[in-house]
Write a protein that binds this DNA or RNA. Structure first.
Lengths: 123, 123
DNA sequence: CCATATAGTAACCGGTTGGTTACGTTAGTC
DNA sequence: GACTAACGTAACCAACCGGTTACTATATGG
């Protein structure tokens, strides 16, 4: 299904889905690393047990949704975090904040069950 | 089934990874629907073009990570949103808020590239 | 110029995902 | 008791994912 992916003829960014990008724990860890400092690809790979090509793939996915930008410098490629698109995730989740906010728990419950199910609802 | 799945002998929750659960757009849409009102499984399925068993699977995944609870009533199963575990996602992303907060853009950049790349890196 | 380090790419592999159809089970309904 | 509605489950399938190894290309440095 290749849900999202691809091309974006005119604009530069956003082919990959950021939700999918952060679904993988390794990628979240990479994001965490890069959020503290820019690293070369090997620099990233040193922090994991998996092979360098595997890291390379993760970096590519991250860069495909704009979470990381890579700029080459000689033979090294520096990976820099650009976490703006995490905003999308943040905004999506914050939409449901009432569900976990302690003070608003009751409201969350109310909203969730507010419109009552159609059929014979006994209780 | 499963990468994560299973058991958790002592604690009740969290067999599935919530990040993975929300990676699928259909599941996010289901979450959205259920956040407004509790629906039966068929009620959910009516909103999509995919088959009912497919919805059933999505609901199961959602309930496996606690985002949805299902309570049976007669032959109907009501799916109710329990979005508390989205807090985990919210907290993870908010960690990187500085990257997209307009006022703190400069700080974000500074932090991201703070440790400046060292040229010749010998090993 | 040649050796080496950094990194991309291709081919492959097994497991997972997201969907399907077909069927089974159980609760209402007549 | 028989039919139907609401659901779960099993079997299947193609595509994808995350990993590997092997190879290639290019910069750098002696």
């Amino acid at each position: 299904m290749a849900i999202v992916s691809y091309i974006c003829v005119m604009s530069i960014t956003l082919r990959r889905d950021v939700f999918q990008a952060i679904a993988d724990p390794t990628r979240r860890e990479i994001i965490n690393l890069l959020s503290h400092k820019t690293l070369t690809l090997n620099g990233v790979a040193e922090n994991f047990n998996i092979s360098r090509p595997a890291i390379s793939k993760h970096i590519r996915i991250l860069s495909e949704c704009g979470l990381v930008v890579v700029h080459q410098q000689g033979r090294e490629r520096y990976c820099e975090a650009r976490l703006n698109s995490l905003r999308e995730v943040s905004e999506w989740t914050s939409q449901y904040e009432k569900f976990w906010s302690a003070r608003l728990d009751a409201l969350g419950d109310f909203l969730a069950s507010g419109a009552k199910p159609r059929k014979t609802r006994k209780r």
